[in-house]
Design a binder for these strands. Structure first.
Length: 601
DNA sequence: ATGGATGTCCATGCCGCCAGCATTGGCGG
């Protein structure tokens, strides 16, 4: 775990333990906010001194001290003091849905429950029913949540969630009572993994909400119905893990055991489409900022619309109050004096201070794929098939970058095979697209590249990527990657950390140093669009964009369907506020080729 | 615990919905 992630975890634990102990809620909120700030930070938090930490809104002297203590000693005294007062099993239960701090505190203080085992026992023998607010329905809900928490430890990959969400949304749109349907939540924000799916449906005039909800609950793959209201339903849908070219040991068997994902449906009238979408898209923190802003302007915002504030207790829509805006996201943001905010930027990372209209990279901007494999190494397509597929996407350029010799498992090319392959690539012709000959050259553990410099200098495009020695320490990783960036023939640093989501954490280089080197040597950092990689990750893209570092978004195409992953790479770029100007795949042909050739003089 | 207005104090994280056992606490975007 990176220092940032570890420090964020410690701060979040502190916040949760404070909640469990019933301490002043603002203290817990402050720690929870600080946890998010540290976790979202692109640069290594240990490189910041107290002054720099305190310059971040939300981090004051006390928390800055705790962060510094953690970076220098690896511990936080306060964390240990709290941990001595809160049973560890209780903290773990905070991750179980339907178990919040207050519920757990009651279970602990009044029922002597300290962990999952004692909770299960209290449910089994019925003793839990004697505790306050513990009726049969609540207990059954908790029982199911506990069961679910056992089988599903991990969040689902964006790419897998996307396919499932598309099926459900299509099904909902097929119902005659449905005017509009869309997947919202963290999926719409393009988060690299999602915990559940949120589907918003708006009804045609006169349509029956209960009937539409029933249609939803009868979707194929539903294994369990958790809630069955007229306008709100929750179900679990079975997952089958198809992870493509990565065979995940254990995962396939596990799939038969029945991992599933929760899918929530909300039904609203069609007039509330915009406000409903904003509510269900989140993030929670973004929603809070928007609602604060609405209040400051004499309005109140909920999923039904943006209303004039009237200090009444009951919700305005229930009193027939007309909203100021509700039908589209654009009009609601506009009424609040804001530009429409891209869903990917709705994370309370300063997006409400953004000046003017947003113009982030879009799928339609991408005009080149600069990292692709053919049958020469581990791809499934010939050079011509690959180029035709790229042409069909409207690209002006495709770079053939098969693996280098050290990637033996991927049938990497030695220098002799490479020379022949380059000839074949240059001889290949597909009308309307330029085919470039390149390589995805391995970055060896010490930062040397897998081909000699003169070989690399003879290629049109060089993508340098780490594939092995991915558990080396941070300092070694930093110097390794910077050495690769410094090679004058390298254009792109491919999947810079080598991480695989839910599988391996990959390298943890000093990102700030890496980005500085990339800027100095005019190397683009890749966002690998495969949903198991999404590497660079969002916060590092943001850091790179702020530094003016060029970014490449590549599908790392091995087979035709890989090009469909482009949207995930683009969403990751948008989460890092990436503009088309900084994304080399968006450049027109002349500009891109001139940039590539600059390294060949 | 933080940040902003003062010079030490004060306000601060929105909203709707649900179950419960009754007027509120907890959840989740």
């Amino acid at each position: 775990m990176s220092v940032n992630a570890a420090a964020a975890q410690a701060l979040d634990d502190i916040a949760k333990m404070m909640d469990l102990l019933g301490e002043e809620s603002f203290k817990a909120i402050a720690h929870s906010r600080a946890s998010r700030l540290v976790g979202d930070m692109g640069e290594d938090v240990s490189t910041l001194d107290k002054k720099a930490l305190m310059a971040i809104p939300g981090i004051g002297a006390k928390i800055a001290d705790k962060i510094i203590e953690f970076c220098t000693t690896g511990r936080m005294r306060e964390h240990e003091e709290l941990a001595a007062r809160v049973p560890p099993g209780l903290l773990a239960l905070m991750n179980v849905p339907n178990l919040g701090p207050k519920t757990l505190r009651t279970l602990w203080q009044e029922g002597g429950i300290t962990d999952a085992a004692s909770l299960e026992k209290a449910i089994a023998d019925g003793s839990i029913l004697t505790l306050p607010r513990m009726g049969a329905k609540s207990v059954e809900k908790i029982r199911q949540s506990l069961e679910f928490a056992k089988t599903s430890g991990e969040r689902l990959w964006l790419g897998r969630a996307w396919a499932l969400a598309a099926e459900i949304v299509d099904r909902m749109r097929a119902h005659q009572g449905v005017a509009k349907a869309e997947a919202a939540g963290s999926l719409r924000r393009g988060k690299e993994t999602v915990g559940d799916l949120d589907v918003l449906v708006c009804l045609k005039k006169g349509a029956n909400a209960a009937e539409v909800s029933e249609w939803f609950r009868a979707s194929p793959g539903v294994t369990q119905v958790l809630a069955a209201g007229e306008s709100k339903s929750s179900v679990r849908v079975a997952l089958n893990h198809d992870t493509g070219r990565w065979k995940l040991e254990g995962k396939e068997g596990e799939a038969k055991a029945g991992p599933s994902i929760q899918v929530d449906l909300r039904v609203l009238p069609v007039e509330s489409w915009g406000s409903g979408l904003m509510y269900f898209t989140g993030s929670k923190e973004h929603n809070i900022r928007l609602r604060e802003r609405a209040l400051a302007q004499g309005m109140t915002l909920n999923e039904w619309g943006l209303f004039p504030e009237d200090d009444e207790k009951t919700p305005p829509q229930s009193r027939g109050v007309k909203p100021v805006a509700s039908a589209t996201e654009e009009e609601i943001y506009a009424t609040l004096g804001l530009a429409w905010t891209p869903p990917e930027a709705r994370e309370d990372r300063g997006e409400l201070d953004h000046k003017g209209a947003w113009r982030l990279v879009e799928v339609g901007d991408i005009k080149a794929e600069l990292h692709a494999h053919t049958t020469a190494s581990d791809g499934t397509m010939s050079i011509e098939q690959l180029a035709s597929a790229a042409k069909a996407r409207g690209f002006h350029t495709i770079a053939v970058t098969d693996h280098s010799r050290s990637s033996a498992i991927a049938n990497g090319l030695d220098e002799k095979r490479l020379a022949a392959h380059v000839k074949a690539v240059h001889a290949a012709k597909v009308p309307g697209i330029t085919i470039l000959a390149g390589s995805e050259v391995d970055i060896l553990a010490d930062g040397r590249l897998d081909y000699d410099d003169e070989v690399l200098a003879g290629l049109d495009v060089v993508v340098a990527s780490p594939h092995a020695a991915l558990s080396q320490d941070s300092a070694a990783a930093t110097s390794r990657l910077i050495k690769a960036i410094s090679n004058p023939s390298v254009h792109i640093l491919g999947h810079p950390t080598g991480r695989l989501l839910n599988k391996r954490k990959g390298l943890e280089p000093d990102m700030k140093a890496l980005i500085e080197a990339a800027v100095a040597h005019d190397v683009a950092l890749e966002i690998n669009a495969h949903w198991m990689r999404l590497d660079l990750r969002d916060v590092h893209v943001r850091l790179a964009v702020e530094a003016g570092c060029k970014i490449a978004i590549n599908c790392d195409t091995h087979e035709p369907r890989d090009m469909d992953n482009l949207r995930f790479g683009v969403m990751t770029g948008r989460r890092g506020w990436l503009t088309p100007e900084l994304c080399i795949n968006c450049w027109e042909e002349k500009k891109l080729h001139a940039w590539l050739k600059k390294k060949r003089k």
